[in-house]
Design a protein around this nucleic acid. Sequence first.
DNA 1: ACCGAAAATGGATGAGTAATCCGCTTCCGG
DNA 2: CCGGAAGCGGATTACTCATCCATTTTCGGT
Lengths: 180, 180
Amino acid sequence: MSPRSDAVRSRERILAAARDGRGEELRLNEIARRAGVGVGTVYRHFPTTHALTEALTRETLERMREVARAAREGSDEDAFALFLGAALDLQLDDGGLKTVLLSPADEEPGVAELKREIFAAFDEVLDRARRSGAVRADLDIVQIEHLICGIEYAVRLGASGDRAPFLEILLAGIRPAPAR
Amino acid sequence: MSPRSDAVRSRERILAAARDGRGEELRLNEIARRAGVGVGTVYRHFPTTHALTEALTRETLERMREVARAAREGSDEDAFALFLGAALDLQLDDGGLKTVLLSPADEEPGVAELKREIFAAFDEVLDRARRSGAVRADLDIVQIEHLICGIEYAVRLGASGDRAPFLEILLAGIRPAPAR
DNA sequence: ACCGAAAATGGATGAGTAATCCGCTTCCGG
DNA sequence: CCGGAAGCGGATTACTCATCCATTTTCGGT
């Protein structure tokens, strides 16, 4: 049974209102007011704040999947570095992405699949990078993701938002120590 | 004029209660209840949450000053690396330290001086590290502090709390790129 | 020892937010 | 066009932050 038309309308209004206030914290009351619906309606569509975050982040997740696929399929030497840069940019762009990637919740339909695909491709690219000597052997995909989040955090602390030096530092840092 | 005895007692009770709940978020009502004083008293002593955080962090700040002094005075080759490791440990140990170090507020008496001393010594140690080729020339003390915060964030994301690999990554990352 | 002013106290209060619950409304297939 | 399921709204409960001020406590001066 397809969803009722008013439900679809409400959902879209809520998402639009939430997107308006991007950057600010998600305040459900405020979003309901801006969307012109009751608070109850917001909770009906998104039982938790996390569910709403996932819905807001879906587009970014899809972009990340594309980037990950391209990195896996391509034969670029620097695929891993490029992917890391892209991932950092996406996370800086969409403050909710980090939460969605790290949380095991996956409440919105399809999000779990998206994440699985992203991490699978990521893992493959990481594996190649490890073998080519661009990344230390003792780092797994989870630690790398945590590091990206840490660098995202550091970039946000700076007023300039200049990610370049911090990305360089991350890439240089995760390279295996040169033998001496 | 020295402070009234009841004021001293209240202050100490509040700090003790706040320390009890270390780790949890600072909830003023809860702290007041546990301290056996009224909420109003808490606000009288600590007008903002930040002031309370500073008071709670003073001891850690003093330890950091000692570490920074030692790093400046010593002639150790690795003074900078050691200091960075110590700073990371202190930040991991005291969740409020980051906030106090980064905020320009300095509401509690003496905190501004402590911070000035810490950063002055830190800056000197960093300068030596730069000249000895252990650190890229384009990084200033603020960026380094932001990086430490980012690494702290990354370590906290991990369940293990194992800081070692992340500290290595930070140290390796901020080294100048080897000429090729 | 006492007193009065100043300092400190405590908790009632107002304002803001999260989340639930349920009577009413809207939708849509038969 | 009708009945019941799905959806809706917002009143409500519960919680926290932060302020304000009548009352209590302290303490230096007498």
